[in-house]
Design a protein around this nucleic acid. Structure first.
Length: 417
DNA sequence: CAATGCGCACAGG
DNA sequence: CCTGTGCGCATTG
């Protein structure tokens, strides 16, 4: 309860600050929430972080300072008129797309899914700053409470980084992790992170070759991309590249496409976040840092923390394997894991998944309906199309490309076993 | 004084 | 050109 309440408060606050033309930063958000609802800043802060992890709220570095965005709004700003005229057009297109995907063929080559997602989510470009200025608070006083599990474990599998989706941010502990936060909140974390990040410790992020990355505001791409990235110096990217085979290239544009462009594509993918997402990795540098070089570690993470992993896998496996048909052994292995995990997905995991898949608004509906992994497996087409009260277009995509795929994969998996 | 309102310069498309 | 953003200053309660 309180969670959704907070979500509403925070999103409201962000919207309100935006309409007032004031930067929705941590300080203002906390203050407004406190004023309006009496919640203490710490709590607000903790809830905000959760929302960031779920991507309900996007943390971005804009013009040198951190801002928070309502993901539902940011995400598809390009076509806002949809609502209006959407009746037909959207519908129609949705249908078309859906059908296509259904057949799949098309996808394989390029991963229709991804593409779509890119569209949707693509605009979240992230940017970190190159030289940000520490303006507001550079507080970094407390970072004691970092014991909480968070880093994404899964990260090890950064696997499919390609999927734009995931790249977006680092999901680590959706709900699983309790907000243990106390006072430390991350006040420091948020801000400070940004700072630190820019500071430079980007291990390897992209070589300079990626001017693109910096192109616009300032990309924090590396960080944004994923905590993982930051952590494995060098690895991630390699991994990404190599991994593609797993996906059989179906999905990841990066992989399959042209060799040369790999770099570029990667960059693009990663940068898909719209403004300048500041992933939470930033937010919790501590943890990350611990591990810093070398491997990442994960402290204690319950299964749920692995959202990432779960997310990734499904994508890969599903698309690569099912759609494409050419799954590798590795894939299958992953699939298994993934499926098992599916049963363990919590409501928050499901929501995070859809959020990451480019449907943040719809993710809320899943959460509202309390759909967890098991429920997801039981969902039928009509449930998705009408039971969630979400728009038909996204609903079709969600069902055809995600729900159905996950279910199919899961059951196939079961049969095998 | 905090909360708001908003003109205007900026950046990206 | 259009849109989104948010600084800086004016206004309000």
């Amino acid at each position: 309860m309180s969670e959704s309440k907070y979500r509403e408060w925070i999103l409201d606050t962000i919207d309100s600050l935006r309409s007032r033309k004031a930067r929705p930063d941590l300080e203002r958000i906390c203050r407004m929430v406190r004023r309006r609802h009496g919640s203490e800043p710490e709590r607000t802060c903790a809830e905000l972080e959760k929302l960031i992890q779920e991507q309900t709220v996007l943390k971005v570095n804009y013009k040198g300072s951190i801002s928070y965005r309502n993901a539902a709004k940011v995400q598809r700003r390009s076509r806002k008129k949809d609502d209006v005229s959407l009746a037909t057009a959207a519908r129609r297109s949705a249908m078309e797309e859906a059908s296509h995907s259904d057949l799949s063929n098309g996808d394989s080559a390029f991963g229709a899914v991804d593409q779509d997602e890119e569209d949707l989510e693509g605009d979240t470009s992230m940017a970190m700053d190159t030289d940000s200025n520490p303006d507001e608070e550079g507080a970094e006083e407390s970072r004691d409470g970092q014991d909480r599990p968070s880093p994404s474990p899964a990260c090890e599998d950064a696997t499919v980084q390609c999927a734009p989706v995931q790249a977006v941010s680092a999901p680590c502990s959706p709900s699983g992790s309790r907000p243990s936060s106390g006072p430390h909140c991350s006040s420091g974390s948020a801000l400070d992170c940004a700072a630190s990040q820019k500071a430079g410790e980007r291990p390897n992020s992209l070589p300079p070759s990626s001017p693109r990355a910096l192109t616009h505001n300032e990309l924090a791409y590396d960080s944004a991309v994923s905590p993982v990235e930051g952590q494995h110096p060098g690895m991630q990217r390699d991994k990404v590249e190599s991994k593609p085979e797993d996906h059989s290239g179906a999905t990841s544009p990066c992989a399959s496409t042209i060799g040369k462009k790999e770099a570029e594509s990667r960059v693009e993918d990663s940068s898909l976040s719209p403004d300048q997402l500041v992933p939470d990795s930033i937010a919790r540098p501590d943890e990350v840092r611990n591990v810093s070089d070398g491997r990442l570690l994960k402290v204690s993470l319950p299964p749920e923390n692995c959202t990432f992993k779960k997310i990734n896998t499904p994508f890969t496996a599903a698309e690569g394997g099912l759609l494409n048909g050419s799954a590798g052994d590795e894939v299958s292995v992953k699939m298994e894991k993934m499926n098992h995990n599916l049963l363990q997905w919590t409501v928050a995991d499901v929501a995070s998944y859809f959020s990451a898949a480019g449907f943040p608004e719809q993710a809320v509906a899943f959460r509202t309906q309390e759909i967890d992994g098991k429920s997801l497996l039981l969902m039928q087409r009509s449930d998705v199309l009408t039971g969630l009260s979400i728009r038909l277009g996204p609903a079709l995509k969600i069902y055809e490309r995600h729900v159905k795929v996950l279910q199919r994969t899961h059951f196939l998996e079961c049969e095998d076993i």
